[in-house]
């Protein structure tokens, strides 16, 4: 429960002397705001011809891009509201706002211009700077069985790397409708559970707002999608997860929960041997048949992405492929929760 006994948000509110559960109320508002913003961005970009082809549909429909810009917008606005209502401190709100703003700008440049494959990983390193300068980290890594390492200097170097790796790792799995948003919800939920089990001194508000922003977007991005996520929002989701993992000291469970993301991106990098944009990759990883089933394209040069792996034995519909990959995230989430008990 959160008392309304804070800030300048109206003497009327304070005088009411209610105890109103602010966080659930703001969660609902954030979901509705995210849905409204997603619809607005859909219409805005759709009417201006910013569309992408949904390659896993037999009729190849054109879908508005960048509907996912509602995610960074919702998180930033509700982080500020969280600070104004006393739910989070100014440092948390500022770090989240700055990291998300940096990653959004990095991603938008990629969305609107043809940039080299190396641009995103390098530019996303800037996302780590607010965390370093505002010192919202604990330079100590905890592992199961009571193992811990104090790494004051190396941890600072790892922060920008962690933000960039997480942001780009999430971006690389944006291949089928609703997948990244659903995976983000699962990972954030696991982080919230980890914070509770480990007794982390921090509140769940940023986790809840992140989930709310994704739920609102998922309403339009779920199969069959009416809008695509976009590079910028995908980078933001990964960067936001990494930022909260660092701020709330739940790095290890977060890495475990993100195993499917890691599996996908490292298999991609291992095969391609470099940072190459998907659109510049002249290799077919999967293909769609006339019945709408996704097949492994069986190209030796193609990376063994998670989607390709899932359909390697039997072809699947896009929705079934989505559900199978979601099962992998739920499984990883369970492993992350077990890890917390081993760390406790």
């Amino acid at each position: 429960m959160n008392d309304i006994k804070i800030t300048w948000l109206g003497n009327l509110v304070i005088e009411m002397e209610y105890i109103i559960p602010l966080t659930p109320l703001l969660f609902i508002l954030a979901v509705l705001s995210s849905m409204f913003a997603t619809k607005s961005f859909m219409e805005f970009f759709g009417s201006r011809g910013f569309v992408g082809i949904d390659i896993f549909k037999t009729n190849k429909p054109k879908i508005p891009l960048l509907g996912g810009l509602s995610i960074p917008l919702t998180i930033v606005i509700f982080s500020i509201i969280g600070y104004l209502t006393g739910l989070i401190g100014w440092k948390e709100a500022l770090v989240v706002t700055l990291v998300i703003s940096i990653l959004t700008l990095v991603g938008l440049l990629d969305d609107f211009r043809d940039v080299s494959g190396l641009y995103k990983p390098v530019a996303c390193l800037l996302g780590g700077l607010p965390i370093i300068f505002l010192h919202t980290y604990i330079p100590h890594l905890d592992f199961p069985f009571g193992v811990g390492f104090r790494i004051s200097i190396i941890y600072i170097i790892m922060i920008p790397l962690g933000i960039s790796v997480a942001a780009n790792t999430v971006n690389m799995l944006d291949v089928i409708n609703g997948l990244v948003a659903t995976a983000g919800i699962i990972v954030l939920s696991v982080m919230g559970i980890a914070m509770y089990i480990l007794g982390v001194d921090g509140n769940l508000y940023p986790i809840i707002i992140g989930i709310a922003a994704l739920v609102g977007f998922l309403y339009y991005n779920k199969y069959p999608a009416k809008t695509f996520l976009g590079n910028a929002p995908a980078l933001v989701i990964g960067g936001y997860i990494a930022t909260l993992a660092i701020m709330y000291h739940v790095e290890f469970p977060t890495v475990v929960a993100m195993f499917p993301f890691i599996h996908n991106s490292f298999f991609f990098l291992n095969k391609i041997k470099g940072f190459v944009e998907h659109k510049q990759l002249n290799i077919k990883v999967t293909e769609l048949d006339q019945m709408g089933l996704i097949h492994d394209a069986r190209d030796e040069k193609a990376p063994i992405t998670l989607l390709r792996f899932v359909v390697s034995r039997d072809p699947l519909s896009e929705f079934d492929a989505y559900l199978n990959i979601v099962v992998l995230f739920i499984f990883s989430g369970l492993l992350a929760v077990i890890s917390c008990f081993l760390m406790g």
Partner: peptide, 15 residues
Amino acid sequence: MRMAKTTLYICIVLL
């Protein structure tokens, strides 16, 4: 939902 056998194998890899 159609559960692919490959998903089980990927779970083993992740485990």
